[in-house]
């Protein structure tokens, strides 16, 4: 059933006391977090802090979790990734994870097929990234890293998400390329899409964020607004000093 727009006060995504386990190991520990429509929320944290595990849990790809993940007021427990994506959450996975033998166009179209099939179409993605239109018949594996990241982002956008999860989209890319990707975030936000951005690059991440959470060894050590927090305080919580 399509979920009607939530009122302004209720968040798009509300995560309560979420823990994610690998066997006995607790990678995410009792995290509380929320994202509203049209809001950019950033998660920062060092290597192994549990950022990717958190995103995987939201998209329904964690083996075992405790706690509640609710989206538009609905508990996502027991739902498969395909259902979650069809409801409007899309992930740009860490490491891009394109289908290397598929063409650019086929990769993008898969995003459309699994998603909500709304107003964002393939031409919009080509509008964001004109280079992809030129390359649309090429195999994904033949693209440069930056172009692959564009396809990964485009694939997620084509799912017409109401909540977009981005896992380290700047990883391994040149600064100019990262700039061109990050420039899109305000445009996506303007469409009323909630965005959860995971980054290790604190500066870049906080520059686009309305609010942020700092993760350390699976726990939230700080939740605040970039404008309200000094760099020293952020660093303290980032490294757990």
């Amino acid at each position: 059933m399509p979920v009607t727009a939530a009122s302004d006060t209720s968040p798009l995504l509300a995560v309560r006391q979420l823990s994610v386990f690998y066997g006995q190991f607790r990678a995410v520990d009792a995290v509380d977090l929320s994202v509203r429509a049209g809001e950019v929320v950033s998660i920062i944290g060092a290597n192994g802090a549990g950022k990717s595990s958190l995103l995987k849990a939201i998209i329904g790809q964690a083996d075992r979790i405790e706690g509640v993940i609710s989206y538009c007021g609905e508990d996502l427990a027991g739902q498969g990734t395909a259902e979650i994506v069809a409801k409007g959450i899309a992930l740009v996975p860490e490491g891009r994870r394109l289908f290397p033998s598929l063409s650019v166009e086929e990769n993008l179209h898969i995003g459309w097929e699994v998603g909500r099939q709304g107003e964002i179409g393939i031409e919009d993605v080509f509008g964001f990234f004109p280079i992809l239109k030129e390359r649309c018949r090429q195999k994904a594996r033949e693209l440069s890293g930056g172009q692959q990241q564009m396809v990964a982002l485009g694939r997620a956008l084509l799912a017409n998400p109401r909540l977009l999860l981005c896992d380290e989209i700047s990883l391994g890319l040149a600064p100019v390329v990262i700039d061109s990707l990050y420039k899109l975030i305000p445009a996506i936000k303007a469409r009323g899409i909630g965005i959860l951005v995971v980054e290790q690059d604190i500066t870049r991440s906080l520059a686009v964020a309305d609010r942020f959470y700092c993760l350390l060894e699976g726990k939230v050590t700080l939740a605040s607004r970039p404008s309200a927090t000094s760099r020293e305080v952020v660093m303290q919580h980032y490294f757990g000093l």
């Binding site: 790809q61 997620a156 799912a159």
Partner: peptide
């Protein structure tokens, strides 16, 4: 796509 990478396929839905 699934044949290329099952885990990626699951991740994107």
């Amino acid at each position: 796509a699934v044949s290329d990478d099952v885990a990626s396929a699951n991740l994107v839905g």
